Amino acid sequence: MNGGPRLFSILRQGPYLIASIHTALDDSQLVRFQQDLVERIGSDRARGVVIDVAALDVLDSFASRTLRDIGEMARLRGAVTVIVGIQPDVAFAMVELGMDTGRVVTALDLEEGLAELDTYAAAPPAPRR
């Protein structure tokens, strides 16, 4: 990641993190993104995460599984995750191939993703089972 263009960025916006993927990532880069983001949730005490994938025109099974895993890891660390910017062709291919985002919420764009996080932040916590 040193010396070359940034492949992804993680920015803080109040109690939330906004993670943008700027270009297609290979599997090792996706794992690095996952590690960096999960660490930032703790260090920034984030209550929510928006992952922007608008720059991606392909989302393979490893990438979609990694995004689901990030959502679960974030949940276990006390943050809600919203994935935004899934392109129409990517959504079509994901449905055709039987891939999904699991329990991770999706939204059209960053604005709607932040609104989703605000909704979750305003809701009372779900009872523990």
Score class of each variant (00 low, 15 high):
Leu59Cys: 12
Leu67Gly: 10
Thr23Tyr: 04
Gly85Gln: 07
Gly98Trp: 07
Val82Pro: 05
Val82Thr: 11
Phe92Asp: 11
Thr81Gln: 05
Ile83Ala: 03
Gln29Cys: 05
Ala91Asp: 01
Leu56Met: 07
Met99Thr: 04
Leu59Gln: 00
Arg12Tyr: 03
Thr66Lys: 09
Asp118His: 12
Gln87Ile: 04
Val80Ser: 14
Ala107Cys: 04
Gln34Cys: 08
Val58Met: 14
Val49Lys: 02
Thr106Cys: 09
Thr81Gly: 05
Leu37Ser: 03
Glu96Met: 13
Gly14Phe: 00
Ile10Leu: 08
Ala55Gly: 01
Gly48Ser: 03
Gly48Glu: 00
Asp118Gly: 07
Val49Arg: 09
Phe33Trp: 05
His22Ala: 08
Met94Tyr: 06
Arg47Ser: 10
Met73Ile: 14
Arg77Phe: 12
Phe33Val: 02
Glu116Trp: 09
Arg47Phe: 04
Arg47Asn: 07
Ser64Ala: 13
Val31Asn: 12
Arg68Tyr: 11
Ala24Gly: 09
Phe33His: 03
Met99His: 07
Glu96Leu: 14
Thr23Glu: 15
Val90Ala: 06
Gly14Arg: 05
Phe92Thr: 11
Glu72Arg: 15
Glu116Ile: 06
Ala115Arg: 13
Val38Gly: 07
Asp52Glu: 04
Gly14Met: 00
Thr101Lys: 06
Ala93Met: 09
Val38Asp: 08
Gly14Ala: 01
Leu56Lys: 02
Ile83Asn: 05
Leu56Gly: 00
Ala55Leu: 01
Ala79Asp: 07
Leu114Gly: 03
Asp100Met: 06
Arg12Glu: 11
Gln35Val: 11
